[in-house]
Design a protein around this nucleic acid. Structure first.
Lengths: 114, 114
DNA sequence: GCTTCATTTCGACATATATCGAAATAACTC
DNA sequence: GAGTTATTTCGATATATGTCGAAATGAAGC
Protein backbone atom coordinates (compact mmCIF):
# COMPACT_ATOMS: atom_id res chain seq x y z
CA UNK A 1 0.00 0.00 0.00
CA UNK A 2 1.37 3.43 -0.87
CA UNK A 3 2.59 5.47 2.00
CA UNK A 4 0.90 8.71 1.19
CA UNK A 5 2.05 11.72 3.21
CA UNK A 6 -1.33 12.85 4.47
CA UNK A 7 -1.04 16.58 4.89
CA UNK A 8 -2.76 18.88 7.33
CA UNK A 9 -5.65 19.56 5.00
CA UNK A 10 -6.39 15.86 4.76
CA UNK A 11 -6.34 15.53 8.51
CA UNK A 12 -8.62 18.51 8.91
CA UNK A 13 -11.12 17.20 6.42
CA UNK A 14 -11.04 13.70 7.80
CA UNK A 15 -11.49 15.01 11.32
CA UNK A 16 -14.45 17.11 10.26
CA UNK A 17 -16.06 14.19 8.53
CA UNK A 18 -15.52 11.87 11.45
CA UNK A 19 -16.82 14.52 13.80
CA UNK A 20 -19.90 14.88 11.64
CA UNK A 21 -20.46 11.16 12.07
CA UNK A 22 -19.79 11.34 15.78
CA UNK A 23 -23.38 11.86 16.85
CA UNK A 24 -26.11 9.29 17.25
CA UNK A 25 -28.65 11.65 15.86
CA UNK A 26 -26.63 12.47 12.80
CA UNK A 27 -25.90 8.82 12.29
CA UNK A 28 -29.60 8.14 12.50
CA UNK A 29 -30.29 10.90 10.01
CA UNK A 30 -27.68 9.58 7.66
CA UNK A 31 -29.13 6.15 7.97
CA UNK A 32 -32.57 7.42 7.02
CA UNK A 33 -31.10 9.15 4.02
CA UNK A 34 -29.18 6.11 2.89
CA UNK A 35 -32.27 3.99 3.17
CA UNK A 36 -34.23 6.60 1.27
CA UNK A 37 -31.79 6.26 -1.58
CA UNK A 38 -31.11 8.82 -4.28
CA UNK A 39 -34.60 10.28 -4.01
CA UNK A 40 -33.68 11.57 -0.59
CA UNK A 41 -35.98 12.98 2.06
CA UNK A 42 -37.18 16.41 2.94
CA UNK A 43 -36.17 18.02 6.19
CA UNK A 44 -39.72 17.64 7.40
CA UNK A 45 -39.84 13.92 6.70
CA UNK A 46 -36.47 13.52 8.30
CA UNK A 47 -37.82 15.27 11.35
CA UNK A 48 -40.81 12.97 11.50
CA UNK A 49 -38.71 9.87 11.15
CA UNK A 50 -36.04 10.81 13.63
CA UNK A 51 -38.09 12.82 16.06
CA UNK A 52 -35.68 15.72 15.84
CA UNK A 53 -37.03 19.26 15.99
CA UNK A 54 -36.77 21.45 12.94
CA UNK A 55 -34.17 23.87 14.14
CA UNK A 56 -32.05 21.15 15.65
CA UNK A 57 -32.27 19.18 12.46
CA UNK A 58 -31.13 22.19 10.48
CA UNK A 59 -28.17 22.42 12.79
CA UNK A 60 -27.21 18.80 12.22
CA UNK A 61 -27.76 19.01 8.50
CA UNK A 62 -25.37 21.90 8.30
CA UNK A 63 -22.70 19.79 9.86
CA UNK A 64 -23.40 16.85 7.59
CA UNK A 65 -23.51 18.92 4.43
CA UNK A 66 -20.46 20.97 5.28
CA UNK A 67 -18.62 17.70 5.85
CA UNK A 68 -19.71 16.69 2.39
CA UNK A 69 -21.68 13.70 3.53
CA UNK A 70 -25.10 14.97 2.55
CA UNK A 71 -26.33 17.16 -0.27
CA UNK A 72 -29.31 19.47 -0.13
CA UNK A 73 -31.42 20.72 -2.95
CA UNK A 74 -34.50 22.87 -3.01
CA UNK A 75 -37.57 21.27 -4.50
CA UNK A 76 -40.60 23.46 -4.31
CA UNK A 77 -41.09 24.48 -0.72
CA UNK A 78 -39.05 21.61 0.61
CA UNK A 79 -35.39 20.99 0.95
CA UNK A 80 -34.51 17.53 -0.21
CA UNK A 81 -31.54 15.93 1.44
CA UNK A 82 -29.68 12.93 0.13
CA UNK A 83 -26.66 10.95 1.19
CA UNK A 84 -23.91 12.02 -1.06
CA UNK A 85 -20.82 11.31 -3.02
CA UNK A 86 -19.85 7.86 -2.05
CA UNK A 87 -16.41 8.79 -3.19
CA UNK A 88 -15.97 10.82 -0.07
CA UNK A 89 -17.32 8.16 2.16
CA UNK A 90 -15.21 5.51 0.58
CA UNK A 91 -12.21 7.72 0.91
CA UNK A 92 -13.03 8.19 4.56
CA UNK A 93 -13.42 4.49 4.95
CA UNK A 94 -10.12 3.93 3.24
CA UNK A 95 -8.58 6.46 5.57
CA UNK A 96 -9.74 4.40 8.49
CA UNK A 97 -8.31 1.24 7.08
CA UNK A 98 -5.04 2.83 6.05
CA UNK A 99 -4.46 4.84 9.15
CA UNK A 100 -5.72 2.44 11.70
CA UNK A 101 -4.90 -0.88 10.15
CA UNK A 102 -1.52 -0.09 8.68
CA UNK A 103 -0.17 -2.53 11.17
CA UNK A 104 -2.38 -5.31 9.94
CA UNK A 105 -0.19 -5.51 6.88
CA UNK A 106 3.60 -5.63 6.98
CA UNK A 107 4.85 -2.12 6.52
CA UNK A 108 8.42 -1.05 5.95
CA UNK A 109 8.20 2.16 7.82
CA UNK A 110 11.61 3.31 8.90
CA UNK A 111 10.82 5.65 11.72
CA UNK A 112 9.06 8.70 13.00
CA UNK A 113 8.63 11.40 10.47
CA UNK A 114 5.79 13.70 9.81
CA UNK B 1 -28.91 -8.16 1.21
CA UNK B 2 -28.06 -8.43 4.84
CA UNK B 3 -30.37 -5.76 6.11
CA UNK B 4 -29.36 -5.88 9.72
CA UNK B 5 -31.47 -3.82 12.10
CA UNK B 6 -28.64 -1.85 13.70
CA UNK B 7 -29.85 -1.30 17.20
CA UNK B 8 -29.30 1.65 19.49
CA UNK B 9 -26.22 0.15 21.06
CA UNK B 10 -24.55 -0.15 17.69
CA UNK B 11 -25.37 3.43 16.88
CA UNK B 12 -24.06 4.58 20.22
CA UNK B 13 -20.80 2.72 19.83
CA UNK B 14 -20.30 3.82 16.26
CA UNK B 15 -21.04 7.41 17.18
CA UNK B 16 -18.55 7.28 20.03
CA UNK B 17 -15.90 5.84 17.80
CA UNK B 18 -16.48 8.37 15.07
CA UNK B 19 -16.50 11.15 17.63
CA UNK B 20 -13.19 9.88 18.96
CA UNK B 21 -11.80 10.18 15.46
CA UNK B 22 -13.33 13.60 15.01
CA UNK B 23 -10.35 15.59 16.21
CA UNK B 24 -7.22 16.49 14.33
CA UNK B 25 -5.12 15.94 17.38
CA UNK B 26 -6.53 12.54 18.09
CA UNK B 27 -6.16 11.63 14.46
CA UNK B 28 -2.54 12.70 14.63
CA UNK B 29 -2.05 10.65 17.77
CA UNK B 30 -3.63 7.65 16.18
CA UNK B 31 -1.45 8.07 13.17
CA UNK B 32 1.66 8.09 15.33
CA UNK B 33 0.49 4.96 17.03
CA UNK B 34 -0.26 3.20 13.79
CA UNK B 35 3.14 4.06 12.45
CA UNK B 36 4.73 2.89 15.65
CA UNK B 37 3.17 -0.49 15.11
CA UNK B 38 2.42 -3.10 17.75
CA UNK B 39 5.27 -1.89 19.94
CA UNK B 40 3.33 1.29 20.55
CA UNK B 41 4.54 4.49 22.12
CA UNK B 42 4.59 5.87 25.61
CA UNK B 43 2.51 8.86 26.52
CA UNK B 44 5.68 10.87 26.82
CA UNK B 45 6.89 9.99 23.36
CA UNK B 46 3.48 10.68 21.97
CA UNK B 47 3.60 14.06 23.60
CA UNK B 48 6.97 14.81 22.07
CA UNK B 49 5.90 13.77 18.62
CA UNK B 50 2.59 15.56 18.60
CA UNK B 51 3.45 18.54 20.73
CA UNK B 52 0.48 17.92 22.97
CA UNK B 53 0.81 18.60 26.68
CA UNK B 54 0.67 15.72 29.12
CA UNK B 55 -2.65 16.42 30.68
CA UNK B 56 -4.28 17.19 27.37
CA UNK B 57 -2.87 14.04 25.93
CA UNK B 58 -4.26 12.03 28.81
CA UNK B 59 -7.62 13.55 28.04
CA UNK B 60 -7.48 12.53 24.40
CA UNK B 61 -6.18 9.09 25.21
CA UNK B 62 -9.13 8.48 27.46
CA UNK B 63 -11.45 9.19 24.60
CA UNK B 64 -9.52 6.99 22.21
CA UNK B 65 -9.25 4.11 24.64
CA UNK B 66 -12.83 4.30 25.79
CA UNK B 67 -13.83 4.16 22.14
CA UNK B 68 -11.78 1.01 21.84
CA UNK B 69 -9.40 2.41 19.27
CA UNK B 70 -6.31 2.40 21.43
CA UNK B 71 -5.10 0.15 24.19
CA UNK B 72 -2.93 1.17 27.09
CA UNK B 73 -0.66 -0.97 29.14
CA UNK B 74 1.70 -0.14 31.94
CA UNK B 75 5.33 -0.92 31.29
CA UNK B 76 7.56 0.17 34.08
CA UNK B 77 6.93 3.80 34.74
CA UNK B 78 5.49 4.40 31.33
CA UNK B 79 2.14 3.79 29.82
CA UNK B 80 2.49 2.23 26.43
CA UNK B 81 -0.27 3.00 23.99
CA UNK B 82 -0.95 1.08 20.82
CA UNK B 83 -3.51 1.25 18.08
CA UNK B 84 -5.87 -1.53 18.75
CA UNK B 85 -8.07 -4.27 17.53
CA UNK B 86 -8.31 -3.81 13.86
CA UNK B 87 -11.49 -5.75 14.10
CA UNK B 88 -13.17 -2.74 15.58
CA UNK B 89 -11.75 -0.39 13.04
CA UNK B 90 -12.67 -2.62 10.20
CA UNK B 91 -16.13 -2.94 11.61
CA UNK B 92 -16.34 0.82 11.78
CA UNK B 93 -15.12 1.08 8.26
CA UNK B 94 -17.67 -1.48 7.17
CA UNK B 95 -20.29 0.54 8.97
CA UNK B 96 -19.38 3.52 6.87
CA UNK B 97 -19.57 1.58 3.67
CA UNK B 98 -22.77 -0.18 4.57
CA UNK B 99 -24.57 2.79 5.96
CA UNK B 100 -23.37 5.39 3.59
CA UNK B 101 -22.87 3.46 0.42
CA UNK B 102 -25.85 1.17 0.52
CA UNK B 103 -26.98 2.95 -2.56
CA UNK B 104 -23.67 2.68 -4.32
CA UNK B 105 -24.00 -0.99 -5.04
CA UNK B 106 -26.33 -1.54 -7.97
CA UNK B 107 -28.70 -4.06 -6.56
CA UNK B 108 -31.71 -3.97 -8.79
CA UNK B 109 -33.03 -0.47 -8.67
CA UNK B 110 -30.16 0.98 -10.67
CA UNK B 111 -31.21 4.51 -9.85
CA UNK B 112 -28.73 7.17 -10.89
CA UNK B 113 -27.50 9.69 -8.48
CA UNK B 114 -25.43 12.77 -8.87
C1' DG C 1 -50.53 41.17 -1.33
C1' DC C 2 -52.02 37.93 2.13
C1' DT C 3 -51.99 33.16 3.62
C1' DT C 4 -49.98 28.81 4.25
C1' DC C 5 -46.36 25.57 4.46
C1' DA C 6 -41.30 24.33 4.99
C1' DT C 7 -37.07 25.58 6.61
C1' DT C 8 -33.70 28.66 8.72
C1' DT C 9 -32.07 32.12 11.83
C1' DC C 10 -31.97 34.01 16.38
C1' DG C 11 -31.59 34.23 21.30
C1' DA C 12 -31.09 31.61 25.15
C1' DC C 13 -29.42 28.10 27.86
C1' DA C 14 -27.22 23.59 29.35
C1' DT C 15 -23.75 20.55 28.62
C1' DA C 16 -19.48 18.89 26.61
C1' DT C 17 -14.92 19.47 24.99
C1' DA C 18 -10.21 21.39 24.81
C1' DT C 19 -6.62 23.30 27.12
C1' DC C 20 -3.22 24.49 30.60
C1' DG C 21 -0.35 24.38 34.89
C1' DA C 22 0.09 22.67 39.39
C1' DA C 23 -0.41 19.14 42.51
C1' DA C 24 -1.07 14.21 43.27
C1' DT C 25 -0.26 9.39 42.23
C1' DA C 26 2.50 5.36 40.66
C1' DA C 27 6.77 3.01 39.74
C1' DC C 28 11.47 2.47 39.83
C1' DT C 29 16.26 3.30 42.06
C1' DC C 30 19.03 3.71 45.76
C1' DG D 1 11.82 6.24 52.79
C1' DA D 2 13.78 9.99 49.75
C1' DG D 3 14.57 11.15 45.10
C1' DT D 4 13.52 10.81 40.12
C1' DT D 5 10.61 10.03 36.29
C1' DA D 6 6.02 9.23 33.96
C1' DT D 7 1.35 9.90 33.98
C1' DT D 8 -3.04 11.31 35.92
C1' DT D 9 -6.14 14.18 38.49
C1' DC D 10 -7.71 18.64 39.76
C1' DG D 11 -9.22 23.32 39.20
C1' DA D 12 -9.88 26.85 36.13
C1' DT D 13 -11.30 28.78 31.91
C1' DA D 14 -12.40 29.27 26.95
C1' DT D 15 -14.76 27.52 23.26
C1' DA D 16 -17.92 24.34 20.98
C1' DT D 17 -22.00 21.67 20.66
C1' DG D 18 -26.87 20.36 21.36
C1' DT D 19 -31.28 21.81 22.16
C1' DC D 20 -35.52 24.40 22.17
C1' DG D 21 -39.20 27.82 20.89
C1' DA D 22 -40.23 31.95 18.60
C1' DA D 23 -39.59 34.87 14.95
C1' DA D 24 -37.92 35.47 10.20
C1' DT D 25 -37.29 33.94 5.48
C1' DG D 26 -38.49 31.64 1.11
C1' DA D 27 -41.87 29.37 -1.99
C1' DA D 28 -46.38 28.38 -3.65
C1' DG D 29 -51.30 29.38 -4.11
C1' DC D 30 -55.27 32.25 -3.93
Amino acid sequence: MENKPLNIADLTIAAAQFAALGSEQRLAVLRCLVRAGPAGLSIGMLGERTGITGSTLTHHMKILTSAGLVAQQRQGRSIICAAVAFDDVQRLSAFLLNECCADAQPEKDGGPHG
